[in-house]
Amino acid sequence: MWAYIVRRCAVGLALLLALTLVTFALFFASPVDPARFACGKNCSEQQRDQARKALGYDKPVYEQWGNFVKGVVVGRDFPADPELRAAAPEVVTHCEAPCLGYSHLNARTVNELVKDAAPVSISLAVVALVMWLIGGVLFGILAAVTKGSFMDRGIVGLTLVAYAFPTFFIAVFFLKYLAVKWQVMPYPAYTSIEEGGIAAWMLNLLMPSFTLALVFMAGYVRMTRAFVLESMTEDYIRTARAKGLQGRKVLFKHGLRAALTPLVTMVGLDFAALLAGAIITESVFAYPGLGLLTVQASAAYDLPTIIGVVILAGSFVILANIIVDISYAFIDPRVRLG
């Protein structure tokens, strides 16, 4: 077992390294000079050169990548240029490991930016997850047990329609009608638990999280429905039924458990992907999470922030994969051999 875990983690680490490498390659393959945007607009040649040095853009890409990886492992100091650091020690910023970089435009380390934004994205993701999971599983079971009925079609159809309308359309519709025109919902503005307590935090998250949950709901309804139906035809269920167990009992005791296991995998991966920020939901609702941070960073061509967030998001997914795989290994010993 331990050997498997170690092996799986090693693969994950290699993947992470590849992720950083590919990210650097992608963003630096372009003919756009990243320093051009680093010091804002009316930037003289000389300022640009200085910004280039401060950010380390004067070095070849592989060296910048090396510095980045080193920063992740042991932390690093900014500006990147040792000369600049020596000349003005008071402006040096230390970025603790795991250092994701330094945003010249914000004059803050990417870690600090992420630390501010992450709670917003995590809150959104958690509440949305709870919503779509409860909604998806309950409606999925309901659809499965009423298979072929009006109810079944209605549930599957409605969730599909909700999925089919673009997220930003639904978000704007909610805001403009529920919050502004009819005022049946409070206008959402992110409130942290420290600021406003659980109730305010929750209340403000309802609309954006629901918007986000709608995107996933359809998939989970269909998945649950299919798994439940499938497991109902499995032999052991038939056996249980033949032994005289009641329909509902069979469903919950045997069918559901088998059906929900693959669901857990999906949840893990979807949730991990969401942790990096729901770009559109956060943009429309102006929730200052990682998604909005990315939107701002790409608008301003703030490369260090973009790269930092991309790599952070990638590592969430890689980590989730490892966790899922390892938990499978516990459940099903055959996995380890594969």
Binding site: L15, A18, L19, V22, L26, F27, A29, S30, V32, A273, A276, G277, I279, I280, G291, T294, V295, A297, S298, Y301, I306, V309, V310, A313, G314, S315, V317, I318, N321
Partner: peptide
Amino acid sequence: LTLAFPQTLMLLALSSV
């Protein structure tokens, strides 16, 4: 590796580059 990249984020962030 491809799955590890956050898709929407990459679509947006890569656009200018």
